[in-house]
Design a protein around this nucleic acid. Sequence first.
RNA 1: GCGCCCAUGGCUCAGCUGGAUAGAGCGCCAGACUACGAAUCUGGAUGUCGCAAGUUCGAAUCUUGCUGGGCGCACCA
Length: 554
Amino acid sequence: MKNKIVSLLQKAFSSCVRKGILPEIELPSPEVEVPNNPEHGDYASNIALILAKPARQNPRKIAEAIKDNINDTENIIETMEIAGPGFFNFRLKDNVWQNALQIISEQGKDYGCSAVGAGKKVQVEFVSANPTGPLHIGHARGAVVGDVVAGLLQKTGYDVDREYYINDAGNQMNNLGKSVLFRYREKLGEKIEFPETCYRGEYIKDIAADIINKKGNKYLTQNEEETIQYFNTIAGESILAEIKDDLRDFGVTFDVYFSEKELYKNDGVTKLLQKLQKEGFIYSDGATLWFKTTAFGDEKDRVVIRKNGEPTYFAADIAYHKNKFERGYDMVIDIWGADHHGYMPRLWAGIQALGHSREALKIVLVQLVNLLRAGEPVAMSTRSGEFVTLREVLDEVGRDAARYNFLMRRSDSHLDFDLEVAKRQSNENPVYYVQYAHARICSILKMARERGISLPGFSAVDRSLLSQPEEKAIIKMLVMYPAMIEGAAKALEPHRVTFYLNELAGIFHSYYNKNKVISEDAALTAARIYLIESVKIVLFNALTILGVSAPDKM
RNA sequence: GCGCCCAUGGCUCAGCUGGAUAGAGCGCCAGACUACGAAUCUGGAUGUCGCAAGUUCGAAUCUUGCUGGGCGCACCA
């Protein structure tokens, strides 16, 4: 719809140029948007204002010229006015809107999909928590944001893979094995002083107990190094399995779990560093190897091989991103906690040294979550093992409410997550407001069926009966849906979907309270059923992208 | 000290990449079920968009400075 207006304007502009009314200048992409003041019509454009400067003419004069040259072959424009300093205000014919509904029921579950991604391969990497403990509330937001970003990209035609990077090669894994060993000994009667670096959560005890159950006390006497290695593996696998379960129940599944260890096979990291050194991106100061990230705008150069000969996390990360691009992705998206923002220039430097453009790697920052219970902060301490796990949140507030709440703000803004509010089934909780709209429609449709009213198809409906302002508002909102999805995908901003849903549910509820869908008037009933079915389709599609259920009844 | 992010009604936040009179929700006040689901709806009040300059036809949005908050500034991950 919007595209048609854009195209009309572009053609009018060209013919102005052809006729010599306007100079031959590049047409900046004209913006056509839905004005927030309905008096300004259905669509508005600032094309004349944008052209005023390069064309060196009065914007209103340009507007007049373009207006005279608009050739509305499809006959969709009702009125076209020039207002204010030179805005175009378009009002479309009612039947244009009414007929636009057809595409919604035709496309059904596919309504809102587009092909702007054109099959390009994209990878979204997110969560990527170390398998040293269960996922907690802090991971949950990143998990949902990543999942929905991926979903949006899929809807817009990208070929998307969701990937989880398992940091299982660093020394935190060693600490994990040690922690289990300490608990193991403790359970078998030893008195243990726990060092700061150890993980103290209950889950460590469970793993230790499990080992005792299955293997007894034989590790008390075995070689400590080997035992720690072994416990690492056991604990890592067990925790990762639990993480996968939690994520699955949260509605998040991955296509690929990529182990950091993979990067070190065949000396992969070392060889890559040697190559980069040959190319001049890495230099040695005798004891350590430095990556020249300042060449790409970083504040200071960064160490890749430590004095002790161990590669840094950054070194592995360069190799990891090289690996990603080698797998043929056109675009790679990392979802990070906002506390890692200082790391961005470093990684961008890394991929540029590998020959990729900075734009090939997009990084979405997700702010940390402020966990509250009834307004009071909930203490979170990872070290002591006191934290609210994702599992607990799922059990307490449920998947739908949890996911929706994490999507109610831009991801780079702080989010208060109140457990009491999130589980309250009231109007403080927008997820129910939206779901209720869907359930309500289902209920009306069910009643219609029970009364023997058939659900009409497009051709069986007199669309012109949908003539009320509220009906037109709903139709416009529904027509806008694909553009909203496209915009959200392009900007990597899932929160736009929740805002859209709240608004759509709002105008529907309002409409419902004012008008009877099912009435004595058969033709009107058919038209309205057709309309609310369209609303249902869009509610369902949008909720599905968010991974939130669209219940038939509540 | 340096860098990044943020500052919008009493509270929590949007504001579609520079557009027309800045919007929601919550809370508050007053109303609506013998009507397809009241988890709903209708009406009402609240703003120097942190402060000050600048850019232009036009700024909450872009630039600079200041104030106030968050986060980073590892040979941790």
